[in-house]
Design a protein around this nucleic acid. Structure first.
Lengths: 352, 352
DNA sequence: ATGAAAGCGCTAACAT
DNA sequence: ATGTTAGCGCTTTCAT
């Protein structure tokens, strides 16, 4: 097992030598085949194959050819929502000959910075990001230096950039209206530790609906923040059941930050002997593929995950065009009503 | 909105000028701070910040510094199994300052080649791949040229490379033994269109167990290949129900290629009025988080997804070491027995 | 301790 | 139609 037994990659020089021409002729064959004499071109093309020539990306990039790599930074690439989104990004980028470099921040500013720095150094073609640090200097610097940046699920705010988003407030409203129409008057909102962001906006939408119905928001909407120690989100949700059930008077419905949390909550509720939806209604968010087959089938807010990704990539690619103007694409969520929601149990009469 | 209003990225030259030193001193501050005079170093460091210097990755790479990018090629990065695996890869790589570039092949050789070519051109640090083209010239070339390649779920075979895998045959055996012990004698195997690969090995394991139990494999094991037109795997599985139910005599259990297919099959079976597990047992594969809360809770074969990814990244990183020898890490699957499996319905007496 | 200089592989402007 | 040449930004000897 030799140490450095790998034959060095051959470059244009080798091709040129093998074909008996100069490097620029090789370059021409590669980038402007039409200006090269038929015969010469064939000879060069043969040489390219015979020496196993592979263009050197970094060298080309150094000369100004844009990198084919686009960074995608999300909370967690293993989260099915982001996984599907990344797939949308990948598919659109592939049509342009580009690749996705995916990174996860786990909601940590330090990780976000680390990835952004690395991507900046690599001189990527662009960045699609679900940002957590509102005023990341790196992000601003990147954008000012000419790297296309597309925001996901983030108000464009001061950063004048392209963005794709789903109307989170509406999502919260849909959940709230559904619950209200069922007769619920005390609703818990299960969220994580994050600050402002999509989840908070959903909560706001929910709150608005409660207020509009004449309820006192502070009494009708109860916040539950999940503990952060459990290893998975689902486990954290399951561990939140105690808090939920100890609220007095007990809420009759829970809106979860996403389907995975709802899954965990369902587990916890089941373990605690609370029947869903008879004793407690549960609403998820995202409408992941498994939602419709859970026990019970989960009522949840659907988001167009794949399309979001495609749109983000589309916007990113558009930025390369000279006449580009930043813009935002907003998608609408919709409510998938299934069996995890029902009218609240009859008041005044506690079961069992 | 100016066309090229972006100030050009500043390089070491700019830093050098700002600090009143030469570029090589700047380079030294960056790579061997110890050999630079204290005072000079501070001055240079200040200059680095003041001009907003960012190292140029491609230029460094051209000079021989390895790329921080590792490619991960799987069937589909949106598939929760691979998403989780990619997360394992990412986490391990992050510890080494590296990033994951994820690509999906959708089982198409052309896509695999396309991604491999691009990665090769970029001169990535290494490649982790769940290969579909058994003798991809690019892959072999890549490896011979010194790029670390780690195979996932693929026998190392002729390609002498590092690999991580789960014992698929054992996985199939576990499923088969469980079903056999329950009394099943006619079992369907739901798979896709793929050729040899992990799924086929699971089927072989299952077949072995049936044969060992004295059954005639060709009668006891029925193959169902899903149609490829439906948009999602789950939909394809649901659409396979007709075929399944038309087999005569009807199988009493189905082993699915993965949990997502099992999910779809459950849907289809439910729609067809076939009760699970009373009339038909169903086994999945992967043990995705939702499996335990499906209706009914899914019996499935568990694979250590995240750990697989970490191990692959570990192996990849190890290849950089001079004393490296290719090796394979094999994980064991385990059976999670839940409620989608039960003894077969009493023979001779058809329900309804 | 610091600087000058030679490329890495490629593209593009220019010369032939 | 083909060849020559000058860098892109950096790392690395090798002087000083």
């Amino acid at each position: 097992m030799a140490k450095d037994g790998s034959p060095p990659r051959s470059g244009m020089r080798d091709v040129a030598r093998a074909a008996g021409v100069s490097v620029s002729t090789v370059a021409n064959v590669l980038s402007r085949p039409s200006i090269v004499a038929q015969e010469t071109r064939l000879r060069v093309e043969r040489a390219i194959r015979s020496v196993g020539y592979v263009p050197n990306g970094p060298a080309r990039q150094l000369r100004g050819v844009p990198s084919p790599i686009v960074g995608s930074i999300t909370l967690d690439l293993a989260n099915p929502f982001y996984a599907e989104l990344n797939r949308g990004i990948e598919d659109r980028l592939a049509e342009a000959g580009c690749l996705v470099l995916a990174g996860s921040t786990d909601l940590q500013v330090a990780k976000e910075r680390q990835i952004l720095d690395l991507l900046q150094q690599q001189g990527v073609r662009g960045i699609i990001i679900s940002p957590i640090d509102p005023d990341s200097t790196t992000l601003i610097q990147l954008s000012r230096r000419g790297t296309p940046v597309v925001l996901i699920d983030h108000p464009r705010g001061r950063l004048d950039l392209c963005a794709v988003a789903v109307d989170d407030t509406l999502g919260g409203q849909l959940a709230g209206e559904h619950l209200l129409s069922l007769g619920h008057r005390r609703i818990a909102f299960l969220s994580g530790m994050g600050g402002p962001g999509p989840v908070t906006r959903r909560r706001d939408g929910l709150r608005q609906v409660l207020a509009a119905a004449g309820l006192e928001p502070d009494k009708a909407l109860l916040d539950i923040h999940m503990p952060l120690n459990p290893p998975t989100l689902a486990a954290a949700a399951a561990a939140s059941v105690d808090r939920l059930l100890s609220i007095d008077p007990r809420p009759t419905a829970v809106v979860c930050l996403n389907d995975t949390a709802a899954l965990g909550l369902l587990d916890g509720l089941c373990a605690a002997g609370v029947r869903v939806p008879e004793e407690m209604s549960v609403i998820g968010y995202d409408d992941l593929p498994f939602a419709r087959r859970l026990a019970p089938p989960l009522t949840t807010v659907n988001q167009p995950k794949y399309q979001l990704g495609r749109a983000a990539a589309e916007l990113l690619l558009e930025e390369a065009r000279p006449d580009h103007t930043h813009r935002e694409i907003m998608f609408q969520p919709s409510l998938a009503i299934r069996s995890s929601t029902a009218p609240p149990p009859h008041p005044k009469r506690r079961s069992r």
